[in-house]
Design a protein around this nucleic acid. Structure first.
Lengths: 198, 198
DNA sequence: GTCTATAGACGGATAGAC
DNA sequence: GTCTATCCGTCTATAGAC
């Protein structure tokens, strides 16, 4: 792959992330993406054969990074530290990669037609694995007896909310307000610290 | 308005909720809605002049009910009871009205183009009002010192997650698993009870 | 009130010149 | 590799018969 190919491919995927993360797959148009990428529609379709191919390439490219923080949760670490670190990493990702978060949110709200296999496969396996660890920690009295699955749902919901519902968060705290993330971090720290106490 | 007009109007709005809640405004087509309503496209457009009119009518009709639980939070009630009741009502709504939840989720993810005024107006005023109450409760030592805004964000995120990300929740706990809501309720009870302790 | 037919704009994708 | 021009299907919305 030449330099120019690599450059254009990444430019397209970057533009596609902008558009798809807002309007979802069906609500987005190739024209929008082409314009955001600063190129003509046929030129864009020279690099990706179809709209579907752009979306799929984007999704697959992002999935790996998306699951990494959970993979890194360590059964041999300190339970509270491990869980709080996971919360922090997820919150950092919501702050640094809000478009990616919204892309997945759109995809899942619409029934996850393109990643359902991943959800019931790799993700479920991963969560089952980590749930076993959390359950063990609870049985050893290191943390409170919590449903591990709903613990993970809580972490996802709370952290991704600041990316996905960003518009609402900003509307409610006011335009003049400071960046909500520092306070969100404190809030989540308090929340998980208190709920994990045995 | 005749009986047949009333019947068809509600049928259309019901069908529109089905479609818009999944695909968002731009991703939905009038044809889809007409088919879901069991009528022809021109017939549907006899009742609503445009696709936009259907969407707007739907949103406005749902907004009132959506904010009611928060209006009902009572400054004179017991703090923990009031907050937990609000959590329960929001979770009940996620269970009973998942399509409504997804409709708002779609709208907000896309930047809330049609309800931004409401978010910065009525919703912000309402939340500001209730935040004052929560802050007062904290100052009186009745609950822990919590950022009231992020408390509300947490409640919204956690409850609506079970409606909006329903597909993911079911994929992770498994198809054979029971209804997740009873366990979600227990989990949220534990979560908020422990975090509110002064 | 409901239908068939269709106008007119927009969408994804391709042909072919450069 | 990039462009203009264009095909063809789908979309919103309307015309007009019944």
């Amino acid at each position: 792959m030449t330099r120019i190919q690599k450059k254009n491919t990444t430019t397209i995927l970057e533009a596609a992330l902008d558009v798809f993360s807002i309007y979802g797959f069906r609500g987005s148009t190739v024209d929008q993406i082409a314009q955001a990428a600063g190129m003509s529609k046929p030129n864009l379709l020279y690099y990706f054969p179809t709209k579907d191919a752009i979306y799929t390439a984007l999704l697959n490219g992002l999935l790996e990074n998306w699951l990494n923080p959970l993979y890194d949760m360590d059964a041999n670490g300190d339970p509270r530290t491990e869980i709080l670190s996971y919360v922090h990493r997820k919150l950092d990702m919501a702050q640094s990669f809000p478009r990616e978060s919204r892309l997945f949110a759109n995809e899942i709200i619409q029934g996850a037609p393109r990643i359902l296999d991943l959800l019931t496969g790799e993700l479920k396996t991963l969560v089952d694995d980590k749930a076993t660890i959390v359950r063990l920690w609870a049985e050893q009295g290191k943390i409170a007896r919590i449903d591990p699955y709903h613990l993970f749902f809580s972490i996802w919901a709370l952290t991704q909310h600041y990316a996905d519902f960003d518009t609402q968060v900003k509307a409610v705290i006011g335009d003049t307000a400071h960046d909500p993330f520092p306070q969100a971090r404190e809030h989540l720290d308090h929340m998980f610290t208190s709920m994990l106490k045995p």
